[in-house]
Simulated scan of single mutants.
Amino acid sequence: MSSSAIGRKGAATRQRIVAGAALLIRDRGAAQTSLDDVLEATSTSKGQLFHYFPQGRAGLLSAVAEHEVTQVLEAQQPYLSDLSTLESWERWREAVLTHYLELGDKCPLGALTTELGKTSPETRAIVSRLYGTWEASLALGVARLRERGAVAGAIDPDHLARCVLVAIQGGVTMLRTTRRVAYLQVSLDAALAPLGISDTTAA
């Protein structure tokens, strides 16, 4: 077998372990998910796990955090990368609501903030980077709207971006508890009100 084939197989095995651990943590929480649980759920041997994660649990949790960050950002694409029109903001809003309605209390954002972000300085830094990247994308979108004259020039892009992130996080927290996306919809629409983007129909 070629080295490239071995590399692809190894990468697939590592990803399978990470994805399986992520699902367990979304369902049970990080504190309630042991390495033995991950081994059983992913049909992985202890030797395999420590081959890919020499640091054990700490290394695996960091990898899961990176995985979940990717899930959060990719779910918002292609809209998050180009929020230069009100139409693109509306499509982004619908994508966010649809994504979290489908996932319910198993969403990666909730696991990142309430679970993984507390496990170590490494995972905390990963979660912090997520919010920094996300905030920058939203702020850039607002700035582009201002440049085009699509929204009031008095709107502060950084402030609005932070309000949107807080709205999503709060709404997702309540969604995870109640399984009602209406909380996320109301909070997100309130944050987006300065842009004139909302839907008065509660989900």
Rank of each mutant, 00 (worst) to 15 (best):
G149V: 13
C163A: 06
D82K: 02
G141Q: 11
S84N: 10
Q169Y: 06
L145S: 03
T119D: 10
L138E: 05
R146K: 03
K106T: 04
S81P: 03
L130P: 00
T85K: 07
R124F: 09
A41M: 06
S88Q: 04
T114V: 07
W92L: 05
S45G: 02
L86W: 03
A95K: 07
L145G: 01
R179F: 11
R129Y: 10
T70D: 13
E66S: 12
L97C: 02
W134K: 00
P54T: 04
E40D: 09
V69Y: 14
T114E: 12
G47N: 02
A65C: 07
S84G: 03
A136E: 14
C107D: 03
L60K: 10
V69S: 15
P54E: 07
D36M: 06
S62P: 05
T119E: 13
L112I: 04
K46D: 14
R129I: 14
R57V: 05
P78I: 02
A41R: 02
T113F: 04
R180A: 01
T33R: 15
A167C: 10
A150W: 15
V69M: 15
A143K: 08
V64E: 14
E90M: 07
E147L: 03
L60D: 03
A152T: 03
R144A: 15
F53Q: 11
Q55N: 01
L165V: 11
L140N: 07
V164C: 06
T44F: 14
R91L: 02
G171L: 09
V96W: 03
L101W: 01
V142D: 01
V172H: 00
D36L: 13
G153K: 15
A150S: 07
L165P: 13
L138R: 00
T70C: 13
V72Q: 12
E66Y: 13
T33H: 15
D36G: 11
T173K: 02
F53L: 06
K118I: 02
T113I: 05
E94H: 01
R129M: 08
F50P: 10
K106D: 12
R93K: 03
V166W: 08
D105M: 02
Y100I: 00
L175F: 03
T173P: 01
A95M: 01
E135K: 12
P54H: 08
L86T: 01
P121C: 07
S88H: 05
T85F: 00
L39P: 15
H67G: 09
R162Y: 03
D82R: 04
G110N: 14
A58W: 13
T33G: 14
G171D: 05
V64K: 14
